[in-house]
Amino acid sequence: MTVRASRHARRLGRLLVTPSVVALLAWMIVPLAMTLWFAALDYRLLDAGPARFAGLANFAALLADPGFYAAVITTLYLLALALALSVGGGLVLALLLDVAAFGRGALRVLVISPFFVMPTVAALVWKNLMMSPVSGVLAWIAQGLGLPAFDWFAHAPLVAVAIIVAWQWLPFAALIFLTALQSLDSEQREAAQLDGAGPIAMLRYLTLPHLARPAAVIVMIETLFLLSLFAEIFVTTGGGPGNATTNLAFLIYQQALQSYDVGGASAAGLVAVVLANIVAFFMVRLIGRSLTA
């Protein structure tokens, strides 16, 4: 009788969870299985003929394509640069905001805003209003400093894209660091002060170790999003000049919706999945640990 009550609750629980699980299963398994299958086909939408089984030919073509390696390197380069800029900048910003004497609410509003700007707007605003060598703000600053205007998208397109992306993610990093900083036990700080720790020692031995975990979380979450960076490239460089800013996501897009090479795009897509899974593995472990804590 008593057991029935809890079994009843559990059955109800399962009933309530099922729709979400089924929806996500369908969303994950079905398309992924199709990608796997397509990757083994010679299947081009522009060819009239039917799709033919091609085995590993798509992967072989991928591995023989220098563009593929370039895309992987571009992906990782963008990732590293955007991460360094946003995490480093976010940390400095959070430390400053944490000690700011007044206007903290307004400061937060200013800092968080870029995160809520849609990628296409962020990219276009930066490309045209900020980085334009003819009339951009950065060119104006350069002129003020007596430097020649720099054509970002012609001479350092990857750096330009990375800056745009870092600008969007910097608020996220700053906000999380700030939240973590504010959860630092004030008695711990006071104890350290009584132990004779100066501001530098405090930062080094108390604050930064406290931020290690949030930093790891930020890096992983940003990594997941940055690996599939697309819109910013789509509206600024279109992958160019040449293929200078073609990352893996953009390469797949080109193969899929410009060349309509279903097989090739799927094979490259699987590479992207594997890459993301490596990060996801570590991330799930980290989050799983915090779930039990």
Binding site: L32, T35, F38, S228, A249, G269, A272
Partner: peptide, 17 residues
Amino acid sequence: LWMLSTKMLPPVGVLMP
């Protein structure tokens, strides 16, 4: 955690299907 891992599937991986 499984639900979370579905979020980590990159959209480009399933663009074609």
